[in-house]
Design a binder for these strands. Sequence first.
RNA 1: GCUCCUAUCGUCUAGCUCGGCCAAGGACAUGGGGCUUUCAACCCUAAAACCCGGGUUCAAAUCCCGGUGGGAGCACCA
Length: 571
Amino acid sequence: MEIEKLARKYAVKNAYEYGKANVGSVLSKVISKAPEAKADMRALSALIGKVVDEVNSLDRSSLEEEYNGYADEFGAEESAKRAASKPKFELPGAVMGKVVTRFSPEPSGFMHIGHTKAALIAETFARQYNGMFCLHFDDTNPENERQEFVDQFHKDLEWLGMGFDKEYYSSDHIEHIYSLAKRLIDKGSAYVCTCDRETIKKNRFDGRECEHRARQPAESLEMFEGMLNGDYEEEQAIVRFKYDMSHQNTTLRDPTMLRIKRATHYRQGDKYIVWPSYYFNTPIIDSVMGITDAMRSKEYEQSEALYREILSALGLRVPNIYAFSRLNIKGNITSKRKLRALIKAGDISGYDDPRLMTIAALRRRGVQPKAIRELMLNIGFSKAESVIDQAALFAENRKIIDPIAKHLFFVSNPIKVVVEGTTQKDVRLKLHPHGRANEFREYRTNNTFYISGSDAETINPGESVRLKDLFDVQIETSTANHIRARAASDEVNASIIHWVADPYFVECSVSLPGDLLTDEEEYNPDSMKVEKGFVESYARNLKKGDIVQFERFGYAVLDDKERMDFIFISK
RNA sequence: GCUCCUAUCGUCUAGCUCGGCCAAGGACAUGGGGCUUUCAACCCUAAAACCCGGGUUCAAAUCCCGGUGGGAGCACCA
């Protein structure tokens, strides 16, 4: 009997929503609510068939009446369904309070939005499980890394509001890495190879072993000491992990563990000339530093086997490893190499050029840390390849800046308007139209105004327009750079335009960053436009970094107060 | 060439582990409407997707097999 009531309820809902109730649909609902009914499917479908027939023979008004009787229950079910719609961050088997994650950048360039994804994923998991979150500078290539970039990461991470429980550097652990390398050589799991680069590459591709692989541990050990002592030049000798030269997974074909780099290291100076490779270094540092769950982007997925093999060969604890997809931003790049090329060519001004997706650029452009975090949380922790539109970032950002942006009038390409038949008027304009109206910009207007060139184009002699928050004027004559108008009485449908009053204005410019790349992935020469115009004189009260909404134009941030340069944020 | 990963509205995703609450939910973008002396914000609303083909099952986005598309690896970079 219970089952029949349930069937009746969902048949009514189904019929109400789709005109006629459907047996399969009602059946599904009933089973999910009362799994025990599955015991006799034949009887159940007969019952539901009967109920559905009854409900379908109801007329509309009695159907609606019956539906309304369940309205509260349906409402509760609907809202429960709508609640869980954000990407989830779950680690299978993670233990509360025991999780340790890390963000592990190489200090070889500016932090960008792609790093942020990695950092935020690691941070989110650590916080979710009430664990520890570490900052690990992975600096094992003295040719690439610089203190300046370490400093920049610190600055950007702090701005993003990321707090770390611990910070460490790969390059502080080189001695330990050496001792583990020796252990591996000694037990025959690694050897010194003196093939040239091309030979190694070719053999790896072909799955062929070289003669050095059979070298006795004692000899390799001696040669490794020689490497440490500087007996070899760069590329003359490397230490390789001895695994399987014909493994289908090519990362397991005896990868490089250590190689010679004679460049001076920004942190360690000339202390070391032999440096571990990423493949050798990362698992060891993670394991030794107590990382329980290591997330990295998908391109390392095939080397997860290697990560585990190295640690088991060493008898070290193996952390859990996870992969996530790289973040791509439509029409933008984060590649160091490409960025450098654009800077060199003079196409962009530097790493904080407002068109870029570096953290420095985003900060300069008035993007709020919270907006970046929200975006990442919406994107989630999946391995599916994706291209995000900048609009998604700016939509998050707009929610945050809208309440704080001061509203001002900016007229681009100004056209002078002289209004006859009007006199001085004191106006008070709200800085935050929807906030408590306790802040104003105040002007004493006379008969001379400026309006945007684009607005001037759309109005013709004889028509009336409304100067926003002021009064209507009727256009008398209009030339390319001068409009004569007359005060007019208010008209219901007058179009509303913004203005600045003479002499209460400052000259200014607004840079409008667009997509850096064309659809063909080439540099877009039109990616930065500049509009010049007048902003009302209240702008003198702004500070660098203040965010405004230029009404009918968009959000902007003051970038250079001296020159009154603004950067456009978004509509 | 070999190997790995991946596939849900235009975009980003929830759902997939454990088949039925999914005639598929949310967000962004888009269209319409409301409010408004901004083209913003806010509110309402519309259109919009399970890559393809087989199979298992009373029931498949979900499980199995086979294709196809996309991404990545095969560095003495990380």
